[in-house]
Design a protein around this nucleic acid. Structure first.
Length: 502
RNA sequence: GGCGACGUAGCUCAGCUGGUAAGAGUGCUCGACUCAUAAUCGAGAGGUCGUGGGUUCGAGUCCCACCGUCGCUACCA
C-alpha cells in the first residue's frame, strides 16, 4: 500500500478566492484523485492561514474578534472548493488548537537544538506587507508597495538561525526535491547567495501562536503557517500518524512563495530534527495579456462565474489541460471557449453521441463487447502509459493530452470503419462499436481526475455500474474490461457546444 | 541594483543531456463524409525558433551582450 500526501498552500483568509488560488487547488486535487485511482492511501490537505496583523486590524475595523473575522473569510475558501469539486480530506485552519500545539512543539525543538535565539529589530513597519522597511525604501515616507504610512516599531525578536543550515539545504536541494528543475535552481541560488538569520517572532501583535518560552511574543505568521503541513498529519498530537504520512509529503505552491517553501520550511524542519518534505511542485502564474493577474484585475475573475459558463468539468479541464505545470500561462475567456468546444464538446462529447446513436441504430441499443485484438488496444495502452507517467510527474496537461490522443484516434477509427454503413446486427458492426465503447470506458476512468462529473456520466451512459472513482488502475485502463450487453441509450450532448460571442 | 525564469507557426503551448529537411492543439483554406453537438476525417498554407555576436563539423537547444515580460531580493551614500 502506497501513501500519498499532497498539500496546497494555506490561503490567507483576507484574500478573496480567485482563479490563481483555484488553479493551485484544482491541480493538487486532480493529482490526489489520480492517486486514489491507483489505490494509494491518499491525504489531500488545504486550508486557511488566519493569523497576523492584517486579520487583527480587519477585525478591529469590523468590531469583531479576530477569530470571528477569520471564520467569515475562511468560509469563502471552503465554499469555493465545494463549487470546484475539490476532494480535500482535511481543511486546516491555523487557528485550531492542534495547530498551536504543533507550532509550539516544532519550534521548541528547533530552539532546543540551538537554532533559535534572541535578538532585536527596529524599523519602519508596513502593516499590509507585514514587513520592515529602511528609510531609503520609503517613498514619501510611505510603504513603497502600498503607498500608505508606515509605523516605527522596535521589538525584541527571536531569530531563526537560517545561516547555520546552508550546507544541509544545499544538499537537500541537490536532489529532485523541487520541480521543475528551473525552480529548484532558483531555490539553490537563494541559498548560494548566503542566508541571513530571520526574525520569526513579534511582540507587537497578539493575534498569533504564543511563543511557549516567552509570553510576550507570538510567532510571525509565516513561521506558524508553514507548520500546518505537519499539524494536519499529526505532528504534536499523533506521532504514529505523522511518521506514516510525513515521508510522503508533497507540496504544491506558486512561484511567489518559493523562498518560504523551498528554503525556510525545509530549514525549519531540519532545525527541529525532522525530515524536509519529499517533493515540492512549483507552478507559474496565470497571466492576462502578458501581465500578472493582480495588476490587471484577473483576481476579479471569480471562479464561480466561469463555473456558471463552463461547468465544473469545463473549468477544471481548461486549467489542467491548458496550463503546463511550471511556466507562466496566458489566460483568456476566448481560449477557454475554444478549449471547451474542441476538446470537450467536439472530440469527447461528440464521440459519445455518435457511438450511442449508432449502437441504437445497429445494435438495438445494447453495447457489444470489444475485440481482444482491436487495433485500438495498443493505442490505449500507449495512452495510459504516457498519462500515468505524466500524472506521476505532476504534469496534468501532459497526462490529459495523452488521454485525448486515444479519444481522437477513436474518431479516426470510426471514420475508417464507418459502422453506420454496416449491416444491422452484424459481427463487424459489433466489433467496431465494442471497441469504441471500450475506449469511452477507459477514458471515463483516466479523465476522472479532471472531469469529476462527466466521467461518471460517460460511465453510466455506456451502461457501467457503480462509481467511476471506485475503479482501480492500472487494471481499469487495460483493454477489454467493458463487458458488453449493457444498455447504451441515446442521450443529450454531454458538453453542449458554446457559441462564440460575436 | 543583484539572483532567476521566460520570449518557438494568427492564438495557446511541446521541444531531456546540441545532429534524420522545426512539432501538437486550435484557427484559416480546400476536399471528403453525413452516424454525430454546423460535429468528424483528410490535405494544405503558415515560423530567418526576441535581437546581435560567439563556441562547434553542426544550435531553438551551450556562452556573452542587449531588448521585452515576470518572480524573488537588496538597497550604503
Amino acid at each position: 500500500m502506497n501513501r500519498f500526501y499532497v498539500t496546497t498552500p494555506i490561503y490567507y483568509v483576507n484574500d478573496v478566492p480567485h482563479i490563481g488560488h483555484a488553479y493551485t487547488t484544482v491541480s493538487a486535487d486532480a493529482v490526489a484523485r489520480w492517486h486514489r485511482l491507483l489505490g494509494d492511501e491518499t491525504m489531500f490537505l488545504t486550508g486557511t492561514d488566519e493569523h497576523g496583523l492584517k486579520i487583527q486590524r480587519a477585525a478591529e475595523e469590523n468590531g469583531i474578534s479576530p477569530l470571528e473575522q477569520a471564520d467569515r473569510t475562511s468560509q469563502r475558501f471552503r465554499d469555493a472548493w465545494v463549487e470546484l469539486d475539490i476532494s480535500n480530506d482535511q481543511f486546516i485552519r491555523t487557528t485550531e488548537p492542534r495547530h498551536h500545539v504543533a507550532v509550539q512543539e516544532l519550534l521548541a525543538r528547533a530552539k532546543a537544538n540551538g537554532y533559535i535565539e534572541k535578538g532585536s529589530y527596529a524599523g519602519h513597519y508596513c502593516v499590509s506587507c507585514e514587513a520592515y522597511y529602511t528609510d531609503s525604501d520609503l517613498v514619501d515616507g510611505n510603504c513603497p508597495v502600498h503607498e500608505r504610512p508606515v509605523e516605527w516599531l522596535e521589538e525584541d525578536n527571536y531569530f531563526f538561525k537560517l545561516s547555520a543550515l546552508e550546507a544541509e539545504l544545499t544538499e537537500w536541494l541537490s536532489n529532485d526535491t523541487v520541480v521543475p528543475e528551473g525552480k529548484r535552481n532558483e531555490a539553490l541560488g537563494i541559498v548560494k547567495l548566503g542566508l541571513d538569520d530571520v526574525s520569526m517572532t513579534r511582540t507587537s501583535i497578539d493575534w498569533g501562536v504564543p511563543v511557549p518560552w516567552d509570553d510576550d511574543h507570538v510567532f510571525y505568521v509565516w513561521y506558524d503557517a508553514l507548520i500546518n503541513y505537519a499539524t494536519a498529519v499529526g505532528f504534536g498530537s499523533d506521532e504514529a500518524s505523522f511518521e506514516q504520512w510525513w515521508p510522503e509529503a508533497h507540496h504544491v505552491i506558486g512561484k511567489d512563495i518559493l523562498r518560504f517553501h523551498c528554503v525556510y520550511w525545509p530549514a525549519m524542519l531540519m532545525a527541529a530534527g525532522l525530515k524536509p518534505p519529499k517533493k515540492i511542485f512549483v507552478h507559474g502564474f496565470l497571466l492576462l495579456g502578458g501581465k500578472k493577474l493582480s495588476k490587471t484585475g484577473l483576481t476579479q475573475i471569480r471562479p464561480a462565474d466561469l463555473i456558471a459558463d463552463f461547468g465544473v468539468d469545463g473549468y477544471r479541464y481548461h486549467f489542467l489541460r491548458g496550463v503546463s505545470f511550471g511556466p507562466d500561462s496566458e489566460f483568456s475567456y476566448e481560449g477557454m471557449v475554444e478549449r471547451y468546444n474542441s476538446d470537450l464538446a467536439n472530440t469527447l462529447g461528440n464521440l459519445l453521441s455518435r457511438v450511442a446513436t449508432v449502437v441504437n441504430k445497429k445494435c438495438g441499443g445494447v453495447g457489444p463487447k470489444p475485440r481482444v485484438d482491436s487495433p485500438l488496444a495498443a493505442v490505449a495502452a500507449t495512452s495510459y502509459a504516457k498519462a500515468a507517467e505524466a500524472w506521476d510527474n505532476f504534469q496534468p496537461s501532459v497526462a490529459l493530452e495523452a488521454t485525448w490522443q486515444l479519444v481522437r484516434e477513436t474518431n479516426v477509427f470510426l471514420e475508417q470503419n464507418e459502422p453506420w454503413k454496416m449491416d444491422e446486427g452484424s459481427q463487424e458492426v459489433a466489433d467496431v462499436l465494442g471497441d469504441a465503447l471500450e475506449v469511452l470506458r477507459i477514458t471515463a476512468v483516466c479523465a476522472s481526475p479532471a472531469l469529476t462529473r462527466a466521467s461518471q456520466a460517460i460511465w453510466e451512459a455506456i451502461g457501467m455500474e457503480g462509481e467511476v472513482t471506485d475503479q482501480r488502475l492500472p487494471e481499469a485502463a487495460s483493454w477489454g474490461a467493458y463487458p458488453g450487453g449493457t444498455t447504451v441509450p441515446k442521450a443529450p450532448p454531454l458538453f453542449p457546444r458554446m457559441k462564440v460571442e460575436g
